[in-house]
Design a protein around this nucleic acid. Structure first.
Ligand code: FES
Ligand code: FES
Lengths: 143, 143
DNA sequence: AGTATACCCTAGTAAAATTGTCAACTATTC
DNA sequence: GAATAGTTGACAATTTTACTAGGGTATACT
């Protein structure tokens, strides 16, 4: 398992906000009950996204959460990194030099894995998810 | 962080065995001191690899570990999965149906991430690592 | 035969990460 | 001012990680 619930829940929530982009704030309760996620826990995840500038909030009655930018400007990678930290297979890749060996055979592998992951998450925008989803939903209706 | 020390240490050990393929068994102590890994801990990792048929052992004096197959027949993915379990971003992808939604927008993302990872680890063999390493070592010498 | 070497196996365990829960507080609307 | 809804910090249960400890077994060498 590569992603914890933090990344998985948080991405679902971000997708939900993208789905409702432009339609006013969505309350925590709405999201948590739709996806069956603990309310208080999801709150903490959304707080992280807010502190990093991806979502905005409106307090009080009829308040809730909303994307701070267009769905076309937020990548899946931004969301996942905000929640899970760097998406690296090994610490060595982010900053620190390999401890023991000057030339490390496994490092090359880790770099490639990282590249493979980044390639997906940095090139998929929340907007893409919304479009893809509406296409799938339409096809499901046609059956 | 995607891989734990299990996968990272285990892959290093497997690489070391690939490096010595055909040259008799390599002792635990040799590997653990070369890579600065706890002996008893590494033993447990190698036990997993043995139980899944990737390495063989010779007991007694001058004994040690050796690959059970050619380095060209063992992928990085085999090693990592033996140690870490399925390399999936989300449980949903391995067997279980998505719980809440019939059509899940994030599932597509997880599938692509998984595909990206598998693409690397299933197409890289220990033999490739050895060749790549010897090339890098030669280049380093020429400087 | 005896001893040193080296793998085998199980149990335990401290620390960290994960996955939440709880409760008091603040802001907004009606 | 009552109801709604986000904010914050503390904290607790559970699981995973990364080991450690120690006895057991097989082999080689003398
Ligand atoms: S020791 Fe850092 S990647 Fe090898
Ligand atoms: S609920 Fe399983 S991938 Fe979405």
């Amino acid at each position: 398992m590569i992603l914890s619930t933090k990344g998985r829940y948080g991405l679902k929530a971000a997708f939900e906000l993208a789905l409702n982009y432009g339609g006013g704030p969505v309350s925590l309760k709405t999201i948590s009950s739709k996806y069956n996620i603990s309310e208080n826990y999801l709150e903490q995840l959304l707080a992280k996204l807010r502190k990093q500038g991806f979502i905005e909030t409106v307090r009080g009655v009829n308040g809730g959460y909303m994307l701070a930018r267009k769905p076309e400007e937020i990548t899946v990678g931004m969301i996942l990194r905000a929640l899970e930290g760097e998406m690296t297979p090994s610490d060595c890749l982010s900053g620190d030099v390999c401890t023991r060996e000057s030339v490390c055979a496994t490092r090359v592998i880790f770099e490639q894995i990282e590249k493979g992951i980044n390639n997906v998450i940095d090139n998929t925008y929340l907007g893409d998810m919304v479009r893809q989803n509406s296409k799938v939903m339409q096809e499901a209706k046609l059956l």
